[in-house]
């Protein structure tokens, strides 16, 4: 702003004061080697002087060693998966804003498109190392207030780290165009005091152990359908739509899909291992056996696909163990 005023001020003054109609004569000097050398050398020296401290800071920024906690962050179309390494806690964080709100039905909240169903919970005052990768395409995990912006590359693991000083909610977004719903995969980090975080982590460990035990028992159709609808809407609906109509040709319709209804085995294989060379990801690491079984059961019985098929979590767990 100040620079603009000075530069344009001098320019407009010169244009006005020395205008042709007032008989101004241009001076005809046009070469000066010393001036050219000076105004090349000075910026060069400034750049070199800035590079020295900047390199030292960069070295610190890129040193993720001696972390208290390791978090694996996996970007996928279009959600984030967080895994607390060594703690057996992992969950997927989906967009919290309902689709209807995006379409303009209903009031938009203050954190419209910046809210998730489950935030990443981190402790305050501890060094947290992020191991960052992707399932499908390149995403970028970006939380400006934490000064972290790191590309997630499928097949490669990048590192970054953070030490949060203040408890609170930190929000961010995916920062690398990753397809249709790139704008709908926000990041929310909830920073807690150390003890509070330890209690939270213990509680989550308990819950995931419980979930694991649910694999062995026999589930009823109603239970699977209810659980399946919940997971389907959170994970599958962004491509295949809540009513199963899909978005062909990239995302086939599931409702009334004869191949899907006829081939139970291929249906399970598709959800568990994905379809190589297409946009369909493998969900073997993203969803628990209970969720996979529930989603498949739901897809085989919802929207008039009344096959009556039941897929038990135990069957999926057995397949995953192979």
């Amino acid at each position: 702003m100040v620079i603009g005023v000075v530069v344009f001020g001098v320019m407009f003054y010169s244009l006005f004061r020395f205008r042709h109609s007032k008989g101004a004569k241009a001076a005809h000097f046009h070469e000066h080697t010393l001036v050219e050398v000076i105004w090349t050398a000075i910026p060069l020296l400034i750049l070199v002087a800035m590079a020295v401290p900047a390199t030292a800071t960069l070295k610190n920024m890129y040193d993720p060693s001696d972390a208290d906690l390791d978090i694996m962050i996996t970007g996928q179309q279009w959600r984030w998966r967080y895994e607390y390494l060594g703690e057996e806690v992992a969950f997927t964080s989906n967009l919290g804003t309902p689709r209807e709100t995006i379409r303009g039905e209903g009031e938009r909240g203050e954190n419209y498109l910046l809210e998730v169903d489950e935030p990443l919970v981190l402790p305050v005052g501890r060094k947290v190392r992020f191991l960052i990768t992707a399932e499908d395409v390149i995403h970028s995990w970006w939380v400006p207030d934490l000064a972290v912006k790191q590309d997630t590359i499928p097949g490669f693991v990048n590192e970054n780290w953070v030490r949060i000083n203040e408890p609170g909610i930190y929000r961010g977004q995916c920062a690398e165009l990753c397809g249709m719903d790139h704008g709908f995969m926000p990041i929310v980090v909830q920073a807690m005091e150390g003890e509070e975080f330890d209690a939270w982590l213990a509680e989550r460990k308990e819950a995931s152990a419980q979930d694991a035990s649910g694999v062995d028992r026999e589930w009823s159709m109603d239970e699977l359908m209810a659980r399946g609808e919940q997971s389907y809407n959170a994970v599958c609906a962004s491509c295949h739509q809540a009513d199963g109509s899909g978005n062909p040709p990239a995302f086939p319709a599931l409702a009334g899909n004869q191949a899907l209804m006829d081939e139970r085995e291929r249906h399970i294989e598709t959800v568990v291992n994905g379809v190589s060379g297409s946009a369909m990801p493998a969900f073997r690491n993203t969803l628990s056996p209970v969720e996979v079984a529930a989603v498949i059961t739901y897809e085989r019985n919802a929207w008039g696909n009344d096959t009556g098929d039941l897929v038990q979590p135990a069957e999926i767990a057995e397949r995953l163990a192979e």
Binding site: V137, P154, E176, L177, C178, M180, P248, P249, A250, A279
Partner: peptide, 20 residues
Amino acid sequence: MPGGGPNFGWTFYAPLSTTF
């Protein structure tokens, strides 16, 4: 065309511009 035109940004980063 079916599926629409290029939708991966003018820098067309792979694998968004290949597999997906």
